[in-house]
Amino acid sequence: MWRRVQSRNEIIGAGWIVRAVVVCLFVGGSCAGYLWQKSQVHQLGQAIRGLEYDLEQLEKGNAVLRQRYSVLASPRELDQRVEQFGLDLRSPAPEQILRIRDSGGRSDVSTVQSLGYSPGRLSRRY
């Protein structure tokens, strides 16, 4: 019995044990690392999904707000508000408008001018 143990010790030395432990640690570490990486990938995937969902919701919310803004800025809505709040606003009479003559053209008349027309009188709006 003693001889067999002694011979085994002769075959498997301390160096081999260390090597085996290192190999086991490496394999175990690799497995753990692989699992950790997979877990991270999964968690990041979930995070990406969550953020994509948030982005989608924000885009939807943005679209809704743009629509609401357009409704609030529409002529009908403004007229209704003016009436609702009794603001008694109305367009000024022509003689109430001070017009300052200028020699310049208007901002977006290039197309019209390129066609050979003189700048018209809608200069303030279009």
Binding site: P94, E95, R99, S123
Partner: peptide, 12 residues
């Protein structure tokens, strides 16, 4: 459209 009147107006 803020079109300039054809006739000269006396500003109030």
């Amino acid at each position: 459209l803020n079109i300039t009147p054809s006739r000269e107006l006396k500003l109030e």
